[in-house]
């Protein structure tokens, strides 16, 4: 899930922080700049791991800051392709499921990566899976008895496999004007998306796979007691 990235940057330390040890001041400043921020093609920065190298602080003409050139290691959230992750279902819609790991929630399971056959129940606002079913059309699937359906509810803990990740760098660019009116920009895309899959044995809500094992264990216990 997490990786270390080596980054290089120039950091300015405000004179009010000169009293503190330089390394602490630098780490605080770097954390302020990078924490909880997505770097393109790197991932979501969590916090500074350590400083690898820091140059002498130099004073530029014009301000009282000390400018340091720093090479540091950053803890970055960037799950690799095919990594298995535990996440929570944040919401569901016709197109798929949105997941969250708390600090990051631009994770999606598109409908194509749901176990087949599957359908979206608009009443429950949730997808469900029909194990061992021959039905394929959504209409047929929605006519099945509720008891056979395996729902993927909101808030459920799911085990997913990372299939791909996308970075979007939507810089605002110069303002575009049409007939003197500012054009509305299209909906903003999240800078970092993770595409996940649960179309595999063992993936999906953790409870699906725990269930059978736990029942087995309970049976075993009951038999032991008996």
């Amino acid at each position: 899930m997490f990786v270390l990235s080596i980054l290089k940057d120039t950091v300015a330390i405000h004179p009010s922080d000169f009293g503190a040890p330089a390394d602490q001041a630098l780490i605080a400043e770097l954390n302020k700049k990078y924490a909880n921020r997505v770097l393109h093609d790197v991932g979501l920065c969590i916090c500074v791991f350590d400083l690898s190298e820091a140059g002498e602080g130099k004073v530029r003409y014009g301000d009282g800051f000390l400018w340091y050139k720093v090479v540091f290691r950053m803890v970055v959230f960037r799950p690799f392709t095919s990594e298995v992750i535990i996440a929570k279902v944040k919401s569901s819609d016709e197109d798929g499921i949105r997941l969250s790991v708390g600090f990051f929630d631009d994770m999606y399971i598109p409908a194509a990566y749901l176990p087949q056959p599957t359908a979206f129940d608009p009443n429950e606002r949730a997808h469900f899976w029909l194990p061992d079913s021959e039905l394929t059309s959504t209409h047929d699937l929605l006519n099945t008895p509720l008891t056979e359906r395996m729902y993927i509810d909101q808030g459920e803990v799911v085990r997913v496999r990372v299939e791909a990740d996308d970075f979007f760098d939507d810089e605002p660019g110069p303002p575009k004007m049409a007939e003197g009116v500012q054009v509305q920009r299209e909906a903003k895309r999240a800078p970092y998306n993770v595409i996940c899959s649960i179309a595999e044995q063992g993936l999906g809500p953790v409870a699906w796979w725990n269930g059978s094992a736990q029942e087995g264990a309970e049976d075993g216990d009951a038999m032991d007691e008996g």
Partner: peptide
């Protein structure tokens, strides 16, 4: 800002967890 190595090493969840707890 310059990225020298975007994937220098993998970290286990536990390492990140201890680091964050120290920070807290």
């Amino acid at each position: 800002m310059e990225v020298l190595n975007s994937r220098a090493a993998l970290l286990s969840n536990y390492e990140v967890f201890t680091l964050l707890r120290e920070l807290e």
